[in-house]
């Protein structure tokens, strides 16, 4: 094996046009470039290949690469738009765009529905909710009796599953989150408004002469 890796080791915004990405998202060109600084940092944390692996994603979230978590896994899978097993820069920006304070509410509702629809059946099913609750309890080292878990799920389905078919469809979810808007709090990252302040080094790598607002 030679000394040089012939594969490109990093992806620059030049390969994914920041102007195009900015035109299709809530981000400005400068913000897309600042996101690239964040992307570079995450995608090089284990292997510097210009792509975010599941391990790198978990490391960025938990600061611990060995931590397995079904929610972080699910978010990773949804960010992996092209189903390649890794997140490229285009996926990263388009997915984070849903979390932008200015992103359409319906996009946030749709993303959160897919997040909790673990098996991608088009429904959030009772057993999925139970699986997520148990995972959350394990993660927070909280112990609840099975009957308490069932009571929480019963109550939730009483409020959310309007047609009583033991699963929540997208219309029921839209209705449920409109009555419980706090559930969408995780779908907005105020940091995305100030991303150029958080990653000022983008200025040194910028290909844009004038900041496009």
């Amino acid at each position: 094996m030679g000394c040089f890796n012939s594969k490109p080791t990093r992806q620059s915004p030049g390969q994914v046009d920041p102007v195009v990405l900015a035109s299709q998202t809530a981000f400005t060109v400068s913000e897309v470039e600042a996101l690239f600084e964040l992307f570079k940092s995450i995608s090089s944390s284990v292997v510097d290949d210009g792509l975010i692996s599941k391990e790198e994603f978990q490391l960025a979230i938990f600061k611990n690469r060995k931590k397995e978590n079904i929610f972080a896994n699910r978010i990773f899978d949804l960010f992996d738009v092209k189903r390649k097993g890794v997140i490229d820069f285009d996926d990263f920006v388009r997915s984070l765009n849903v979390f932008h304070p200015n992103a359409p509410l319906e996009d946030k509702i749709d993303f959160s529905f897919r997040l909790y629809d673990l098996d991608s059946t088009g429904f959030i099913e009772r057993q999925e909710v139970k699986q997520m609750l148990i995972a959350l309890l394990c993660e927070s080292e909280m112990k609840l009796a099975d009957e308490v878990i069932e009571t929480i799920i019963d109550k939730t389905f009483m409020d959310a599953d309007l047609n009583k078919d033991e699963k929540i469809d997208i219309v029921e979810w839209q209705n449920f989150v409109s009555k419980n808007p706090s559930l969408l709090k995780i779908m907005t990252l105020p940091y995305l408004r100030d991303i150029t302040t958080s990653f000022p080094s983008f200025v040194f790598n910028s290909n844009v002469d004038e900041i496009a607002a």
Partner: peptide
């Protein structure tokens, strides 16, 4: 807040794995 008074999704949404804010923390 007592867990039994919360709906399941309120509890689930407290997972650290859903907190993408940590992506921005070094």
């Amino acid at each position: 807040v007592e867990p039994v008074t919360m709906n399941a999704f309120e509890l689930i949404s407290t997972s650290q794995g859903l907190n993408l804010r940590s992506l921005f923390e070094k």
